[in-house]
Design a binder for these strands. Structure first.
Lengths: 245, 245
DNA sequence: CGCAACCTTGAGCGTAATCAACAAGCGTGG
DNA sequence: CCACGCTTGTTGATTACGCTCAAGGTTGCG
C-alpha cells in the first residue's frame, strides 16, 4: 500500500478542497480540524501578499488571526522616537494575531511573498466555540510561545552580542529543521536591520559579529541571505550558558 | 437589597468552605469555578511558604500549577555562569507553573511569606477537562502574559537604564492599583539585585538611577522597600516612547 | 550600465559594567 | 545595650562593549 493511501485514510476525500492552498499538515494549529469543524471552515480565508507588506499594525483592532502557510513574517513593536523591537520571526505553520484588549500588540509585516490563512475573529470565543480540541491546541501553542518569549528575555537582558548572534543562527537552524529543511545552508530572509532589532543591537554590531564568526571559520556568508553553519558545536558553545540548552 | 445579598446569589452558600484561604474573588483564574467544578476542587491544595523559598526549579518536571493568593513571587532563568534573568514578578491573583515539554522553564521563588493555591497537573488536559470555561480563561490569561512578555522585550532590547527603571516603577504602581492598593506609597518587595536581573542591568546601575530620580524629586525612597512616586507624569514622560502607552 | 539600497569596515565616543570602598540596616550574642 | 559581623545598598573611579558617525563596498534591479 503506498504512503498516499495511508494519508488519505486520515484525510477524507474532498477535504482538501477547503484548504487547497495549505500543505502544512500537522504543523498547522488547525490540522485535522478544518475537515470536522464547519465553524472553522466558514470563517477562514486564503490570502497572498507580496514581500515588505503590512498585514496589520500595532494598535489596530484585532479582527483576524492568521496562520502563515508559506514565506516569512516579522512582528515588531515601535517606540515613538523610532526605536524598534522585533518580537518574533514567523515561518510556515506559525500563527499570529492574538491581541490584548482587542488591539494587536505588534505590527506584522512580510519578509517575503507569503500565503496566509486568515480566520475572522469577532472575539476569541467565536472562533473556538466550535471545537474544544482547537482551544486546547491554541492554549498549548500559547504556552510554547510564552516559553520562547522568556528565552528571548534572557537573550536580550543578559547575553553579549556574540552570544546573541550565535543563538540567533542556531535558532533559525533549529526551526528550519523542524519544518523539514536542512540545518546548514541556512536561509536568512531578514535584513541586518531586522536581525539587529530582534537582538537588541545595531546593524553595525550584527555585521561585525557575523564577520568575526566568519573569520573564525564557524560560518560562511553567501549573498547576505544564506549562511552556512560550519561548526555547529562551536556555535552552541558560544550560545550556551543558556539555561539547560 | 444589600450588595452582599446580590453576591450571595452568585456564590452558593458553603462554597467558601473549599477555598477558605482565598480572598482573590474575581482576580483568580478559577473565580466562580471552584464551586461548580468538582474536578478542580479535587486537585487543589493550599500551601504556605516562608520568604526566600523555592517553589520549583527551572528544569523540574511540571507537576503542579499555582495561583498566588498572598505575597509576592519571582520567576527567573539562570545561565550556567550565573547570569540571571527574572522573567516575571507575581502578585496576588497571578498564576504560574506552565511549562513546555513537561519541564518548568523558570525557577519560582518567594519574595515574602506567601500563600499559594496549588493544582496537581498530570497533564494540562487533565486540569481543564472538567470545564471549558476554565480553558477559555487560561487561554485569555496566556494571551495577556504573552503581550506583557513582548512589552518586556521592547524594554530589555531598546530602553536606557533610566527608561527601564521608570517603566518598572510605573508597572509596579499600575499593578498595585489593579489589585486595589494605592498607586503611590509603593511597596517594592524585591531586592536591588532582583530589580537589576529583571531589567537587564547591574545593582549599581539600578541604585544610581534610583538616586538620580530621587535627586530630581520624582521619587523618595524609604528604607529600600518603599518608594513614593512624587511625579507620575514626569516618570511616564521618561518611560514613554513606549508603543501606544 | 547606473543607481539605490543594503552591508561592511573604521574611528571615536558614551552608557552601563566592573572593580573597589564605604555606609546602612539588622540580627546575634557578649 | 551596644559591639560585632553579615548582608544589602550606595557611591566613586575606571574600563569596555556596543553605539554613533562616517566612508567605502556589494548587490541587485530597472
Amino acid at each position: 500500500m503506498p504512503v498516499s493511501a495511508l494519508v488519505s485514510a486520515f484525510v477524507p476525500a474532498g477535504s482538501r478542497m477547503d484548504c487547497a492552498c495549505c500543505d502544512l499538515d500537522e504543523r498547522a494549529f488547525c490540522a485535522g480540524l478544518a475537515q470536522t469543524s464547519s465553524a472553522l471552515r466558514a470563517i477562514r480565508h486564503d490570502m497572498r501578499m507580496e514581500a515588505q507588506a503590512t498585514v496589520f499594525r500595532e494598535g489596530d483592532a484585532t479582527d483576524h488571526i492568521f496562520t502563515l502557510v508559506s514565506g516569512a513574517v516579522k512582528l515588531s513593536k515601535l517606540m515613538i522616537d523610532g526605536r524598534r523591537q522585533i518580537v518574533g520571526f514567523l515561518f510556515p505553520g506559525d500563527f499570529f494575531g492574538f491581541g490584548h484588549n482587542g488591539l494587536y500588540g505588534y505590527t506584522a509585516e512580510t519578509l517575503s511573498p507569503v500565503t496566509l490563512c486568515r480566520f475572522s475573529l469577532l472575539s476569541l470565543d467565536t472562533v473556538v466555540a466550535g471545537s474544544r480540541e482547537l482551544e486546547r491546541r491554541l492554549l498549548n501553542r500559547m504556552i510554547a510561545e510564552l516559553s520562547f518569549a522568556q528565552e528571548q528575555m534572557l537573550l536580550l537582558g543578559r547575553m553579549s552580542a556574540r552570544e546573541k548572534v550565535a543563538h540567533f543562527l542556531l535558532m533559525l537552524s533549529r526551526r528550519a529543521t523542524q519544518r523539514g529543511d536542512v540545518p546548514s545552508p541556512l536561509s536568512v530572509p531578514m535584513s541586518r536591520l531586522d536581525i539587529a532589532d530582534y537582538l537588541g543591537l545595531t546593524i553595525e554590531t550584527v555585521s561585525r559579529t557575523l564577520t568575526g564568526l566568519k573569520k573564525e571559520r564557524l560560518i560562511t556568508i553567501n549573498g547576505n541571505t544564506q549562511v552556512d553553519l560550519l561548526d555547529m558545536q562551536a556555535l552552541e558553545q558560544i550560545a550556551a550558558g543558556g539555561c539547560l540548552c
